[in-house]
């Protein structure tokens, strides 16, 4: 089995004559947790889409042969009143209800009696449109997990989720890693989360600004390159507590 699950070499992405990503190269080892950080418009989501082969690029994106990717998008452009239930959505990927229920438990939904329950109603029969941001994200994670992936690509796990639920999304990622062999690549703009959960970090601002373990890679110079000279980001002081 190859040691690297992903190798990216000289990746360039140009959209409508705008250069979005320039000469990005990095490698990801198996079971690593890689955070991708950078300001808005740095090309983080575009990098994800290139990794997934969703848009054209120059350069090489090489995944290990046995790779199975689960993708958790930032959001879906789905109207509130679309009549699509959680069950129907998850069945697009997996027909076996037992597997579906197991994965929903895995992402933190609870059962009452025989059924998974969402605010007193059966979760599987609930429409996607009435779920809260955090619940919806859990369903998206469940969708990604249904293919039994060995890599999870997470686009901004926090957006649209309130603070307490946000904490659990990262705890959830952490827990999943302990339960199954997973390489995780996630996009974030919260340094605190990066320090706490990522083993490696890729700082991105059109080009690669830094790469390495967060405490080594993120320094004053790279922060300045990412967010401008006069922005003061802090290293989280209580990291030893967690």
């Amino acid at each position: 089995m190859e040691e690297n699950i992903l190798k990216v070499t000289n990746l360039n992405v140009t959209l409508n004559t705008h250069k979005i990503l320039e000469n990005i190269s990095f490698e990801v080892k198996r079971d690593d947790t890689l955070a991708i950080i950078g300001p808005n418009g740095a090309g983080k989501t575009v990098l994800f889409k290139a990794l997934l082969g969703l848009l054209p690029y120059d350069g090489q994106v090489e995944w290990a042969k046995d790779v199975k990717i689960g993708y958790v998008p930032q959001r879906l452009n789905i109207e509130k009143d679309v009549p699509l239930t959680v069950e129907e959505f998850l069945k697009f990927k997996e027909k076996d209800l037992e597997i579906i229920e197991r994965v929903l438990l895995q992402v933190g939904f609870k059962t009452e009696g025989d059924h998974l329950i969402h605010r007193g109603k059966r979760l599987l029969k609930t429409r996607l449109g009435v779920l809260s941001g955090g619940e919806f994200q859990r369903v998206l994670i469940a969708f990604a997990l249904l293919g039994a992936p060995n890599v999870l690509l997470f686009d901004e796990p926090t957006s649209g989720v309130d603070v307490s639920a946000e904490e659990t999304v990262y705890m959830l990622i952490d827990r999943l890693k302990k339960e199954v062999d997973l390489t995780i690549i996630f996009i974030s703009h919260e340094l605190e989360v990066v320090y706490r959960y990522a083993e490696h970090v890729l700082c991105l601002n059109k080009e690669k600004v830094c790469y390495g373990p967060p405490r080594e890679a993120i320094d004053k110079a790279s922060l300045a390159k990412l967010y401008g000279e006069d922005v003061h980001f802090y290293k989280h002081e209580h990291h030893h507590v967690h």
């Binding site: 997934l52 969703l54 993708y71 998008p73 879906l76 789905i78 699509l84 129907e88 697009f92």
Partner: peptide, 17 residues
């Protein structure tokens, strides 16, 4: 039907599958 509907929900999700 399933693939078409997943594409309606999210083209990216469908393509990634």
């Amino acid at each position: 039907s399933d693939r078409l509907m997943l594409g309606v929900v999210s083209e990216d999700l469908a393509k990634s599958a």
